[in-house]
Amino acid sequence: MAAVPSEVVEPTGPPEGDGGTKAKKSGIGLGKYIVIRALLIIPTVFILVTTVFVLMRLTGDPVSASVGGRLPPEQLAERIRAAGYDRPIIIQYLDYLGGILRGDFGTTISDNIPVTQLLTRYGTATLELVLYALVVALLLGIPLGMLAAYRRDRGTDAVLRVLAILGYATPVFFAGLLLKLVFSVWLDWLPVSGRVTSSNQLVLQGVSAPTHIYIVDALRLGNFGIVGDVLTHAVLPAISLGLLVGGVFLRLVRTNMIGTLGQDYIESGRSRGVSERRLVTKHAYRPALVPIITVMGMQIALMLGGAILTETTFGWQGLGFKLAEYLQARDFVAVQGIVVMLAVIVAVTNFIVDVVAALIDPRVRY
């Protein structure tokens, strides 16, 4: 009697003979796909920049909107002329486009800071928060999605699906307030707000050529006390924002793993005596991860939107926090620059995700 193989044996490469031709065709298709996706960034960003510019100008000139009620008419008119807002709108628009191409997003009206400097300093804080939240979402969504698929139509699956819906449907600021109430106020385990304690922040500001990504700067110092402080402050904001996307990942992994578990090679493995746990953890989960890669760009855009509320809730000094401040100050130059930068980040992120997805799954290119 023949021995029963202990696991599924899958083909690892293309058939001999025409494999080189197929690989060559795939390479050409991938190159064209990358070029097309890269070129699509240009009209996307152009439309976004134009839309934001027009919407901001519908309120009037930025100087009047920000300080119109606090300056005498003569000084207000002088500031409008100095900023060039008395010129025709088309000239202002062309100058703004030219400034963006040079990396100049203007200067804030309320505190006279170059918007580029604002984006560099506070954008890294938002990037740090989004990366923390993405790690939380992946750590929750992937294993729990696998568990839900493995326990399909049982109590565990039902509970996890409900939790996934709640995680996505709960407003980010409300989840943040609940987390603060439980873990900061009642249990006193974690900080209420901020990115780091004030004393450690002064230390981090003394780092030569700081990245303003506190975890990176703390590691560069080699001070693991500050590293722990940074991570402790990041726990609640990361969970609050990560739950928003973690539920999406959970449902995606569950749905795709259920489909994968019905494939012929999985059934073949079952017939050969391979354990269900091994089929799930070794053979079925990798194809189920492809959809997560393809939608990750959209989820990062969702995170950037949620970061505005999360940063405001936790006093996290990032672009979302500053955007709320400048909206209250009606500083539309700063608002315009921040919104445009967020739009560019989303467009570039989608491009990177699309390329990664095309590398993993050639079907994406067609």
Rank of each mutant, 00 (worst) to 15 (best):
I91H: 13
G247D: 09
I258C: 12
G337K: 09
L236V: 09
V49M: 05
G31N: 04
G17D: 01
A23K: 13
L342P: 00
L163S: 03
L309R: 07
L241R: 06
I36K: 12
G306E: 12
V162G: 12
Q75W: 10
A209E: 13
V290R: 03
L178H: 02
Q92A: 02
V159C: 04
L160K: 04
L250M: 05
T211K: 14
V135W: 07
L118A: 01
I47T: 05
E10K: 12
Q117C: 08
P72M: 02
G17M: 04
R151V: 12
T260I: 02
L163G: 00
F224C: 15
L289H: 01
F46W: 15
L250H: 05
V185W: 15
L131T: 15
F105K: 06
L127H: 07
A38Q: 02
P287R: 05
N256F: 00
I293E: 00
L144Q: 06
S268W: 01
T120E: 12
S193G: 06
G318H: 01
G262T: 06
V49E: 04
L147V: 08
T170K: 07
I41P: 03
G145T: 02
V295H: 07
F321P: 00
H212P: 02
T108C: 10
G315R: 03
A164W: 15
D61S: 14
G98F: 01
V136K: 05
P73K: 10
D111V: 12
G103I: 15
T156L: 11
A149H: 05
V63S: 10
H283V: 02
G194I: 06
T120W: 10
L187I: 09
E10I: 15
D153Q: 12
G145N: 05
V8T: 06
T281Q: 04
M341F: 15
L244P: 00
Y366H: 14
R152Q: 15
L279T: 02
V136I: 11
K180D: 06
V45Y: 08
R151I: 07
L48C: 13
L323Y: 03
A77Y: 10
Y285C: 00
D264Q: 11
L39T: 07
G68W: 00
S199D: 13
T232C: 08
F224M: 13
S199I: 02
L138K: 03
D264L: 05
M303Q: 10
E74H: 11
G106D: 02
R87C: 08
D229Y: 07
L181Q: 07
P62V: 10
M298N: 11
T313Q: 12
G262H: 06
L71K: 10
V4W: 09
P5T: 02
V295W: 14
A169W: 13
G20M: 14
V335W: 15
D157I: 01
D153G: 13
K24S: 06
F249G: 03
V9M: 01
T312S: 09
V115I: 09
R277Q: 07
G155L: 08
V67M: 06
V216G: 09
D95K: 10
A357Y: 08
V335K: 15
V52Q: 04
V290P: 00
L40Y: 13
V290N: 05
Y168P: 00
A137C: 03
G306C: 12
V274E: 14
V280A: 06
A324F: 11
T12R: 08
Q205P: 12
K22F: 10
G20D: 14
Y96E: 04
V207G: 08
L76F: 08
